[in-house]
């Protein structure tokens, strides 16, 4: 894949992949991948002009502030950075966003959310991890809840989700829990991705200009 650069893409950045290849592996069609490339170029050159999305650029895009760190944004970045080389390449960007497409499979969304919440990548969502995420959310929202209330919220959720009662949530328990509470993965779908070329017509104009070059 990576070595078969056509003449047309010779000037593209490292990690660039042909839209036709990405379209065949994701819910996006070719013109949507081209539109995503326009968005990718914008995000990946916002601070460091190297055509790769760095963590600060991701934070800037999410929060309008390159220094605003957030546990969940960090986790999303780490999952998008499939090669774990500290940047999000174009192919990684499209493949990862594909999970958020309304037509992506529910199974992929459930798995992605599980990996997101499995902070220490042990293959389980542990009680301490859930508590850490609740505390991060409270901190982010400037909400103050007593330690006892936080413990109760975590305990209650664990008693519902950890059906095997071993103190951790495995993938099967997570799947069952999400099927009881489908709203848990509502944020795993971005309706805008359904037809990104309609939602962002300016990207299409730009990508057509590129094609003519």
């Amino acid at each position: 894949m990576g070595c078969k650069y056509s003449k047309k893409v010779i000037n593209k950045v490292p990690g660039y992949e042909e839209p036709i290849v990405l379209a065949s592996q994701t819910p996006f069609n070719v013109s949507e991948v081209e539109a995503l490339y326009e968005l990718y170029k914008k995000l990946s050159n916002s601070i460091i002009a190297d055509g790769l999305i760095h963590r600060e650029e991701f934070q800037l895009a999410l929060f309008r502030n390159k220094n605003k760190r957030n546990l969940f944004a960090d986790r999303i970045f780490d999952l998008f950075d499939i090669k774990k080389n500290g940047v999000i390449e174009f192919g990684e960007f499209v493949r990862s966003l594909g999970v958020f497409h309304p037509d992506a499979s529910m199974e992929d969304k459930i798995k992605f959310a599980f990996r997101l919440y499995d902070l220490r990548q042990t293959g389980y969502i542990e009680r301490e991890e859930l508590k850490e995420m609740v505390l991060a959310l409270l901190h982010e929202s400037d909400l103050v809840l007593s330690v006892d209330i936080v413990e109760s919220i975590v305990d209650k959720t664990f008693s519902d989700a950890d059906t095997k009662g071993d103190g951790r949530i495995d993938q099967d328990e997570w799947k069952a829990f999400v099927s009881k509470h489908p709203s848990l993965i509502k944020n795993m779908t971005l309706p805008y991705l359904k037809d990104i070329t309609l939602a962002f017509p300016s990207f299409v104009v730009n990508s057509e200009v590129d094609d003519a070059d």
Binding site: L39, A73, L137, L145, I153, K156, L184, A199
Partner: peptide
């Protein structure tokens, strides 16, 4: 809302850091 009845995952799913919509805003 009784906090103890909150689902912790519902709560954390409201994080701004999980809202990728901002990526598409100009």
């Amino acid at each position: 809302v009784e906090p103890v009845t909150m689902n912790a995952f519902e709560l954390i799913s409201t994080s701004q850091g999980l809202n990728l919509r901002s990526l598409f805003e100009k």
